[in-house]
Nucleic acid binder design. Structure first.
Lengths: 336, 336
DNA sequence: ATGAAAGCGCTAACAG
DNA sequence: CTGTTAGCGCTTTCAT
């Protein structure tokens, strides 16, 4: 039972004062002779001493706790992003408290209170509504914030977002290159920048290729498989029917795939379907879908590095919101 | 900026002593008159005061931090289980530190050190090797432990595991009921209880139905799609070839599906495939697979309730390891 | 180069 | 019913 070992016992065993133990552990703020250092390290080893992080945080008036608010790791997209956040944080000596908002503002605000109570050093937030309230409260508490994956009006914090406009454009261009000229789009409601970025990419690609924009080919819904299915059913019943569909993400693309099957249309020979990848490719059973791969790892890594640099003052406090853009890359097509 | 509000300021505003503020916040240990309580709550509200959890933990000599060690949330199975752990923990006022071992013992041991430093109140551990070392160290530190999803020899801690034997039996029986009598099995190596449970279920179902056990029909590999594909390719080239395959999990079932396609065999008309569900059904694009649904939510919930009860002494300390078994249920078949 | 000691914000025992 | 106060284990300033 090593639980109650504390610094004084280490000091006694090493024959030094407890302050010296601190200097060894923290590598400062004052120098320690090589000989003493060895004695102290020996004693630490022998006793299995681990400095109490709670006491340390209290004394230092700062924690190594990072708060992460995300919608739901059951969506593998968020699981991958936050996984990388954790990896980077751990490597730099920080501890992550991961909180699922379940797409609820109320829960987001509860987590802000939690992070306040825990005196979190910083927060990474993947918003799910367009409310800026969580960010405003964090600013009021002086807790550094990085917004991930979305941009919210009225929030003055650095954001790390994928270049959705470019991605939407790439996806649409891919379909155009395959010879399609009636391309349906299944998106999310307008209020999220995410969605409108992809939508704009779609529209720009059409324009760039001098294809007409037909409002009837643009369907909107939620973000689940069933939403995609319903929207696709609607599109596939149009006359003349679209020969290709660009869906907001993989889940909705799967729904579109099911809708195509229900309509007796084989994929991709009768309808081509493309979507952004939320589901890892590895989990897709059907090779008939093409995806635009999102840079999840980079987004996780950069958001975490950014918040840690902000906390440790290696980055400047957000005067002008720095906006890290990332490129969406087209995956190798898995159609056959 | 409300950051530095602390208890004395609340006390001053409410015109009481700081102890009284504590009594109100903690609902004890001594009673407070209704009138005073209102004044204190008002002051807390007005100042936006949040008690400092760090100072509280230090003073109380116990934290509300729960450590969770899991392999990897990129496997949606683990994502769902830990999601539920977090939900329960939060509802009971605990904070979860989630750590990904990436199937590495070395990382598991690093996390034990982290939990030691953080003075975690308890740990939930999903092991990935058969080493009992992490459990032994936690025991040495007097940190309560619940083992989840696997059972490790030499570990004296309560375990929450699914009834894999029963699940393997149900899966095999399902295929037998469809009229199959040459049923292949794709499993994992023997050393994990998990795997051997499912294997035994397979064998028992065969025996129960007086079907011969053919060792050649039992293939073993890793746990990824490609492993399943290779194992299935092997099985499907046997003479006479199996007409059905029971795979360890969904990932390997997907691999088996691909293998069947490569062999020109349609599913399920030529080969039936069934697997345990790691991937949520919602993400499966192909309706040709049947799955045995695992009680992820229950496992997460029960493991978390168990560790919290242990921490709060509502459950007895683990004299005899209490072993919570759960039933694996057959899902509705999605074959067509 | 090292020791002594103050105090981080809180809880709970002691004293009214 | 309420106020006063001693620490929880550590960091860091002030002495030496």
């Amino acid at each position: 039972m090593k639980k109650n070992i504390h610094r004084d016992q280490v000091a006694r065993l090493a024959g030094v004062s407890s302050a010296t133990v601190s200097y060894v552990i923290n590598n400062g703020p004052r120098p320690v002779s090589a000989e003493t250092r060895v004695r102290v390290l020996d004693a630490i080893q022998k006793l299995g001493y681990q400095p109490n992080a709670v006491a340390r945080s209290l004394r230092r008036q700062r924690t190594t706790t990072l708060g992460v608010i995300l919608p739901d790791t059951e969506n593998p997209y968020f699981a991958e992003v936050t996984r990388e956040i954790e990896r980077v944080a751990f490597a730099r000596g920080y501890t992550v408290i991961q909180c699922h908002s379940d797409y609820s503002l109320e829960r987001e605000l509860q987590f802000v209170d939690l992070f306040h109570a825990e005196r979190a050093a910083g927060v990474i937030w993947i918003p799910t509504t367009d409310s800026s309230e969580p960010a405003l409260r964090l600013a009021d508490l002086n807790i550094p914030l990085v917004v991930l994956d979305r941009q919210i009006a009225g929030v003055n914090a650095p954001a790390v977002i994928a270049d959705n406009l470019n991605g939407g454009s790439i996806a649409t261009q891919h379909l155009i290159n395959l010879g399609h000229n009636r391309i349906g789009y299944i998106g999310r409601p307008f209020d999220l920048s995410h969605s409108s970025g992809r939508t704009r990419g779609y529209l720009e690609a059409l324009e760039r290729n001098s294809l007409p924009v037909d409002e009837k080919l643009i369907a909107r819904g939620g973000f689940r498989i069933e939403d995609g299915r319903l929207a696709a059913l609607h599109l596939l019943k149009l006359e003349p029917r679209p020969t290709a569909i660009f869906a907001y993400n993989d889940f909705m693309a799967i729904g579109a795939l099911r809708a195509a099957w229900e309509c007796g249309l084989t994929v991709p020979s009768k309808v081509s379907i493309i979507g952004f990848d939320d589901i890892p490719q590895s989990a897709l059973t059907c090779p008939a879908l093409t995806t635009i791969s999102q840079p999840k790892i980079e987004m996780g890594r950069r958001s975490c590095e950014l918040i840690l640099d902000l906390i440790e003052k290696k980055a400047l406090p957000q005067q002008e919101p720095l906006d890290v853009k990332l490129i969406v890359r087209e995956s190798t097509s898995r159609a056959h």
